[in-house]
Structures are given as C-alpha cells and as structure tokens.
Amino acid sequence: MSLSRPTPTVKPSGLPVGSTATSRALLLLWRVLALALLVGISLLILYPALWMLSTALKSDAQVFTYPPVWIPSPPQWHNFVDAWYGAPFTRYTINTTLYALVVTAATVLANSFVAYGFAKLRFPGRDVMFAVMLASMMIPGMVTMIPQYILFSKLGWVGTYLPLVVPSFFASAFFTFMLRQYFLTVPNELSEAARVDGASELWIWWRVVMPLATPALATVAIFTFDGTWNSYVGPLLYLNDEKLYTLQVGLQFFRNGSQTQWQHLMAASLLVMLPVVAIFFAFQKYFVEGASLSGSVKG
C-alpha cells in the first residue's frame, strides 16, 4: 500500500468543517472524552509519584508500616532538609548542571548536524554508514564498557568528565536516527529553493531545517538533559573523586549495602527531580511551536 496524501482543496477558516449543531456537539463530546482519559492516565502516573512524596514525609519507623499509610502523621518535613545535608548535594547540583548543559548543547548540535547529512544529502556509502551507526546502538554496552574504559584510561581521561562529555560532541546513534526520521518528514521545497538561490548546505541546515524542527530539537534536548541529569553508571565508573560526583551518585549515600534510609532517599530523589520538572514546564512552548510548516509550505 503506497500512501499518497489526499490532495487539499479549499482551506476553510475558523472552526472545522460542518459547523452544524450535531457536529459541534460531537466535537465537544470528543473533547470531554479526551479530557477524561487524560485525567485518568494522569492519576495512574501520579500515583507512584505521590507515593514517593508520602514516603519522603515518613519517619524511619513508618516507612514500612503495614498496611501502608498514605498520610504520615506528623509529616516529617525535616526529612527534606536532612536529606539535602546527607550528601554534598549543593556541590553535586552544580556539577550535574554543568555536565548536563554541556552534553545537551553538544548533543543537539552534533546530532542534528549529522542527521541532516543522513537525511537530506546524497553521497556514496551513506546507507551503509547509516546501517553501521544503527548497529553500534545494538551492541550491548556492557561488553564494550571495559575496553572503552581502558581506552579512556590510556588517554588519561579517567577521573575527569572527559569520557562523559567528549563523546557527546560526536553524535549518538539514537538521536541522530530520531532527527533523521524527523528531517525526512520535512518537505524539500524550501531547501531546494534555497539551494537554487546558491545557499550552502550549512546555511540550509542552520536556517531552514533547524527552525522547522524546533519541537524535535526540543525533544532531543529534554531527553538528553534528563538522561544526563539522571545518569549514574557512567559518572560512577569514570569519576574517582567524591567532589566530582553527580546527583544520582549522591543519592547512593543513603544506601549501605542492604540497608537503605528510604525516607531520605525519597526526599532527596524528589529534590533532585524538581529542576528537570521545572525546566520541562518552563520550556514547553518549544515542544509545540516552531513547526509552522502547515499551510505556509504546503498546500
């Protein structure tokens, strides 16, 4: 089945078509239904998060009471303060913020750059290289971990952030693949036009394709930021100085082998995730705006 787009005919303005009373009612019904579904799913998703909050407010003795209680009495708000001072979290917040910002900026730039090449340009060996790139994502990291560690050790990078940051400047399979797919949905008319006008590919990438891809780039940015913010095994493997540790490693301070101070771990986990939630909330418009190719380009 080859899918061809239905040819657009007339563009009516305002409300969708058939503004009769019944279709309005149907539309309203559909929206109410969608809203109800959204609320339902939200509750399912929030349940565990609320449970974390509840645990974070419990006393040591209350954490595993059975049957579990939802509302701790009295709520131990000081758990948040205790947790914050249970490990050098202020320092770790600075470390993690710098680390995540650098990796995010590098990832967005490098991956979109490479993805543009794979999506929009023709050159010999492109598809083979793309296949190799995908394959590199499919080899489990645990068998390349030790040789990679030895490599970074030989470079003298172990104990620094270099092994964690430098590779992000060279594009990763996952997000390059994602952006390539996205770029492939961006129609070629604009770039062709720019090319005819003599624009360089660099210019087309930066000024034509990138602005159109804002939601996708924002998605890459938030996923990378979140992934880096929460990364644990990498920083732990390569950093040898407690002063350089990241937030996720810091959370481990609450665990002693089999014993865990759950209430502090939960409180600290909530504090650690707050910045990501805040950033996500604040930068939302980038997920939905920018894709202005509707109408203007097409039709």
Partner: peptide
C-alpha cells in the same frame, strides 16, 4: 507530539 505538530492542518481540513 513533536511529529504530530508537524502534520499540516490543511490535510485534516480537506
């Protein structure tokens, strides 16, 4: 969602 936002509205309208 990022991809959905890129689907031209006029397609639905037509």
């Amino acid at each position: 969602l990022a991809a959905l936002r890129g689907v031209p509205k006029d397609l639905y309208e037509s």
